[in-house]
Design a protein around this nucleic acid. Sequence first.
DNA 1: CTGAAAGCGCTAACAG
DNA 2: CTGTTAGCGCTTTCAG
Lengths: 334, 334
Amino acid sequence: MVSMKEVARLANVSVSTVSRVLSGSVGVSEKRKARVTDAVRRLDYHPNELAKSLKMGHTHTIALMVPSIQNLIFPAIVRGVEDAARKAGYTVILCNTDEDIEEEKRYIARLRTRFIDGFIVASMLPDSDHIRQLHKDGFPVVLTSRLYDETMDAVGIDNEGAAYEATGYLVKTGCKRIVFAMGRPEIPLYKDRFEGYKRALKETDLPYDERLVLHERNGTGSFYRLLMDLIRSGVQFDGVFSSSDPKAYVLLRALHDAGLSIPQDVSVISIDNVDTSSQIEPPLSVISQPLYEIGELAARKLIRQIDYKSRTGTLPPPQVDMLKTKLIVRKSTR
Amino acid sequence: MVSMKEVARLANVSVSTVSRVLSGSVGVSEKRKARVTDAVRRLDYHPNELAKSLKMGHTHTIALMVPSIQNLIFPAIVRGVEDAARKAGYTVILCNTDEDIEEEKRYIARLRTRFIDGFIVASMLPDSDHIRQLHKDGFPVVLTSRLYDETMDAVGIDNEGAAYEATGYLVKTGCKRIVFAMGRPEIPLYKDRFEGYKRALKETDLPYDERLVLHERNGTGSFYRLLMDLIRSGVQFDGVFSSSDPKAYVLLRALHDAGLSIPQDVSVISIDNVDTSSQIEPPLSVISQPLYEIGELAARKLIRQIDYKSRTGTLPPPQVDMLKTKLIVRKSTR
DNA sequence: CTGAAAGCGCTAACAG
DNA sequence: CTGTTAGCGCTTTCAG
């Protein structure tokens, strides 16, 4: 690897002169500047970012923590983060935590020692004190797609409102008995979506029937059994509102296997709008959340924090941004 | 950040002693060792990996280049890579290249200056001299899921054989006129799959009809039009073999929209077996490739190269591994 | 067994 | 305008 020293030697100047021209050339004579740029070219010199990082205290690297990239909502988010990061000259380290808080802690502990500039955490569960600690320790952090509160930067959607709208749409199109597929209750966004469902029922004077809410047992796959059991039990329903697209896929599968036709026998709606949701049969009606934009904004906010911190030495006041969702009616609803 | 110096001061030893106990304690008296470990604990000291990297010349970081994480086959591969990497104490940087060779070059140029220990490239196109150069320059590289040859480590599947088997299965179950959805010809694996299709036809004495092969125009979405046009043109067919799962999804969509039923009117098979393929309606019959294992093995091979290089100073002889594919019959075929 | 010192490649005072 | 110097935090000879 060719170092600055060699460039300096070839250009017959000192390393500091080389360093100067490489970082803006303020106060360097044209003559020497030319010699340096020439030497740089001839040696095909590229500065060692690692050494720079050690000296400067930042790495232009951010960490992105997701539960699992295999969950369909994350590829788009990750892509948004990566694009925005790259545009700003940042590199992203991808961390799959598998919902395992210990794994996440280990990951963070390792990353901290490398001068990671900041963290986007899309995997936060309640009791994640290690994340709050990170923020308290002065690390730029932005939360997304899971839990967030007012103490840290975040970008999300109005989950309660989205669920309210989804349920409302089902009601408006004639559904009277709507199944709700509820995700893991530790994840607050599911609670919010549940609330939206209940509020929509109440405001349209539809009775709330406990038997119609399906609670995830272990893994998304469990909804297959849950819905099948409901069907067999004879409880009637004419609509299904899934709290996420991946769950909707398995619900749809169960409905098909039970011989029910969609949307004639039952309307299905969901929240997310993952890429495949428009392609499957039937195309899924959804409340769409702008996944890519969420990732993009999260990255931009993080970088803004990093810049702010490098200027002032402290983190800016936290701010949570809510992005708009949109109802997209396709063929799974009447 | 607490440094080794502070630990040394608290423990009343020199920094070299601290360094020694932290890296195995060879030749350190029990007494001092205890003093050091105690100081480490009390100060909650964590070594600065960046400084270590600068000194040692490696970072325990690998780069993973994919065309786009939004392509359904990559989340599983990425996950495999990340899991294997993490197990070995490595961190992965995710790079989406968008099939843009210039973007890829820029990415690599940036990464090289950071002492990246190696590259897994799942995005290689022909004429990727910058990748070969990387390898020539002594960087550990493993190729996967795209182009590869004998000059570099690689992990892949037998694409020709997989396509042969897929087509053969369609023939065996009664198809006589099989549409083939051909991906971008610059990507060799699609050529291989095309060859397998043709060989199966030949060996079963079915005529090869050019009109039955659909050539991707721009983007996977183009297959919708392509298939619709074929249907309208009146050319008969009773089977569709898609060269990848994402393409199969749009083909399925077109078939549905045209009012054809699957598999009664036409059988559909594909190569990949992405997670959602078992969930959609109808569940897709596929030749499955072990995506996760491919990623896992790629990472393990890369790390093996890194280790080998750090011991011997050179790269080990390249070796390409072929993983087994498997026919999975679901509901989209007769 | 232990510490002093050099140096990885770079930046940023500090003199001149 | 330019060069010398002192580190960033760590590992690793090299003496003792």
